[in-house]
Nucleic acid binder design. Structure first.
Lengths: 208, 208, 208, 208
DNA sequence: AATGAATGAGGCTTCATTCAT
DNA sequence: AATGAATGAAGCCTCATTCAT
């Protein structure tokens, strides 16, 4: 994505950026149409290159597809572990912080395209699913688990059935993502209000 | 799947059942592979007929696809309106009843295949999305809204932000469906425990 | 090659003959142009069918290629074993008989196309080479060996170095085949005269 | 193959030798794979240069191909005319000398690759065929004809049918070349023994 | 009505050739 | 002169659709 402008006056070529641009174009097409329906010609056109050029960087359509998914797996959740560990305030403030971040990461973002891709093509690419689960999903769940544990220790979270399913806390986020991908036209979500309601629900749902 | 034998003497063919069997087979293939990657030949084989026969009942692959989605749109939610309207007990019992029903309808069921289909192919078939939203999604939301309204009137539900987003109540169900479709191998969901946690969360999250 | 005319008035279709016709067309194209340069479209056109039809009978271009070679491997040499074993006359008559037959089989015949194919594509298809060697070449050599052995026993063939290399006896045949494929325009072979010279040479070369 | 170091101080590049090295590399690839299947990239790699550099020396793949064939057409047969004209000894010694030389020239040598090339691609390159015939084949035949004529005059060769087909004398050589290219794995030729048998056969086959 | 062989458009992939550096 | 990235024409192959039986 970073395009180092060469110091020439004509920034026509940016060789080093090619693979990234192809991946970018591929993400758009794959996310919209799926693996089979996306055409390499369209991806090339979108990347501003010729069809054959893709093959200089990726061995096949499938390889490009996998590269696209992998490229968006690197989620900046790692920093959050620290944030959560050192957070000084109350659980509701922490939850607000984390959930807000999740929304920014996912909703209306290109990450939602990756999620759509995984839902559909997952069965044919178990490696990608496994990768995504390991690097993104399970990390998110772990963070939520830590928040819950911390909240229980602080006496702010009720140690009941809901506290044992951290995935429940993400559920509204995931649904918002998919709702946006699917029913946006019929029934849009007001993200701000939805996020507030989400936090409100979780805080009361878990509070001691 | 049940094949009612016609009272003819030669029970080898049941013409009337053909379209349904093709739709059934199509659902399996489309849900697993998506519209583009599913092959009519495989659908035919699964339905126990020849490829050309599909065209006796459907004009094209897309027509079959739409028929498949439409066939699963008829959700038995209508009855619930009445149930909710006449329910004598407390809100938590009513919620338990409805959510349990939702899980039975969706999770691990072929409906989840339709949901997957819609998530992916939705952009190319806005009519189907609109249909599904109108017939299924919005009906479900309406039912939940009524439950919430009823709960507030009965003083059992807190009239806060969470009460204004009935979609929040379904979110864990949707997530369970997609989680099952995607991460089942890596990280299965114990549906019973998850449902209990879900209800626990909602009841506390909404309770007055 | 045999085309059983259906008893319909329009002999438009001969399903059973299709694979044979494709192989026939493939032989022409492969023999003339080689595997890589032959185009499936041309083969189809030559066979009077559409490109895709080839794939109903053969999985790939390579499979067709192998089928083409295999189809011409069945050489009617087996009968000769008997002929040689029971031949009543002198060695020169027997040799004349066998060599004449070899010429009829190879020279100017489509078998020469197969030989050309094998010479070029052999390295990539060791199985075909092995098959051809086993079914055709080694059988021919065996027959010649038997003739030599019989001639020595009858005192008609000199038991010298030449008698120990039966391949020498076929050599002029092979060369005639390749000469015909290559230098026919510049320097044609008068097959009749060449065959006579060949026999003359061998008989004297081997005679006691 | 010998790379004469230019007297420049930087011996890393020897431009003058480039075309020859490309031709050398091309011969290997074309002989092994044929014109269509050989890849310029592989030829370049084998020559230790970049793909584009080939076009500095040859206009197209076909031009390179023709150059490859032409480069191996220059056969040192000319000297033999003299040798034969002035040979003092008997015909069998002369034949032995010439045939031995033929074997050295052809068998197991890269010339066999050229022969393979011509057999396959000949129809598309009549000029090359004509060239090869004129410069190599017909010269060889002429030499053999002279030997035969000389032998007849000396009363050492029988003036029969075999004497009128000098190509017969080369046939075992050609066959040995092709056998080596094709059936070497299944059924190798012991060249020494084969050559002896060949000479034995010819001498007796032609002797008066 | 059913079949499945045949068609041919469309998309992936290769690679000779070009071209900017 | 050399490089190797980029191009795009061409060919293999798939599969939705048609059609003769």
């Amino acid at each position: 994505m970073t395009r180092p402008q060469p110091d020439s006056q004509k920034p026509k070529r940016r060789k080093a950026a090619r693979p990234g641009e192809i991946i970018e174009a591929g993400l758009q097409e794959f996310a919209t149409k799926g693996l089979a329906a996306a055409r390499l010609e369209d991806i090339a056109k979108r990347a501003g290159i010729a069809k054959g050029t893709i093959y200089r960087y990726f061995d096949s359509k499938e390889e490009l597809f996998m590269a696209v998914v992998r490229s968006r797996v690197v989620l900046s959740l790692d920093q959050f572990e620290e944030t959560v560990a050192n957070f000084p305030g109350k659980t509701d403030a922490l939850l607000k912080l984390v959930l807000t971040h999740f929304y920014k990461q996912f909703v209306g973002n290109e990450i939602s395209g990756v999620i759509r891709i995984l839902i559909v093509e997952g069965p044919r690419f178990p490696d990608l699913v496994e990768l995504y689960h390991r690097e993104v999903t399970s990390k998110g769940v772990t963070i939520l688990s830590h928040i819950i544990k911390r909240g229980i220790e602080r006496g702010e979270i009720r140690d009941g059935p809901a506290a044992r399913e951290p995935r429940l806390i993400m559920a509204p986020t995931i649904m918002a993502v998919l709702w946006g991908l699917t029913f946006q036209a019929q029934d849009p979500i007001d993200i701000e209000q939805y996020l507030n309601a989400h936090i409100d629900m979780i805080l009361h749902g878990l509070s001691a």
